[in-house]
């Protein structure tokens, strides 16, 4: 028996919004420790890694490890049926071929359940090596989303250059060129507004704007985003989900021919 309950359906809606542009389907691996999903997009350029810890749920029970392959479009249709302040419970029997989403209104007067067929998905798990990144940038997630949106107008790819002075995002194309420089903040009122840079070595890498923009769909999950970069390895874009876990996106850099 698997059962996981969240007090607010909003968080699950936001998580789905953060992954459904990149993935059509995904396998949710459930165990005692929580729920994990790791999946690459069809072109194998980016990877989504979602971790939701069991202690972040209002209730969590997983008697036996269970992998649930879900069509994310279908899951989105079901989650649309939940109000934001509904409690959501995800339930499945061991070896089941369906999963049930149950939504309860705050006053418990409305209870709805939606059963969805599970899918058998070919899982290709990737071993991601532990990496000491040369540069780790933390910045407001909305600022990062804004920069990705703005620079995508100029080119399909974006250069990210990180030095100890700051981080620079650049794009150039037929229209002209764009550069956005962010310096490390010296003092801020709110921690969420801070820009911080930990640098061992300066790094310059080029990435496809389309994927970066897809990652920024996770912005509603977290006030801050963390970019981890080293020369010639995939970028990691991480959004922490308060008290519950995180969503990490990996993106292969553009490489010289």
């Amino acid at each position: 028996m698997f059962e996981a309950r969240l007090i607010s359906a909003t968080i699950l809606k936001k998580i789905l919004d953060a992954i459904k542009d990149l993935l059509n389907e995904g396998t949710f691996d459930c165990s005692d420790s929580g729920i994990q999903l790791q999946a690459m997009d069809n072109s194998h350029v980016s990877l989504v890694s979602l971790t939701l810890r069991s202690d972040g749920f209002d209730k969590f029970r997983c008697d036996r490890n269970i992998s649930m392959g879900m069509n994310l479009g279908s899951m989105a249709k079901i989650l649309k049926c939940a109000n934001n302040d509904d409690t959501v419970t995800i339930k499945a029997q061991d070896n089941a071929d369906t999963v049930t989403f149950m939504f309860e209104s705050p006053n418990h007067e409305k209870v709805s359940d939606y059963e969805m067929k599970l899918m058998n998905l070919d899982q290709e798990h990737l071993g991601i090596p532990e990496t000491d990144y040369s540069c780790v940038v933390r910045m407001p997630s909305m600022e990062f989303a804004r920069i990705c949106r703005d620079l995508a107008q100029f080119s399909e790819s974006m250069l990210i250059c990180c030095t100890k002075e700051g981080v620079k995002f650049s794009a150039s194309g037929d229209v002209g060129s764009a550069n956005v420089k962010l310096a490390q903040t010296s003092s801020v009122d709110k921690e969420e507004e801070a820009v911080s840079i930990e640098m061992q070595e300066p790094v310059t890498l080029t990435f496809a704007c389309r994927y970066l923009n897809a990652f920024t769909k996770a912005s509603p999950l977290s006030g801050q985003v963390q970019l981890s970069m080293s020369a010639d390895v995939p970028l990691v874009v991480e959004y922490r989900i308060q008290d519950l876990g995180h969503i990490r996106y990996y993106l292969a850099p553009k490489i010289e021919d």
Partner: peptide
């Protein structure tokens, strides 16, 4: 010029 890398060439398939 540059081409788009793929994750398979950086991470090992388990």
């Amino acid at each position: 010029s540059q081409t788009q890398g793929r994750l398979d060439s950086f991470f090992k398939v388990l």
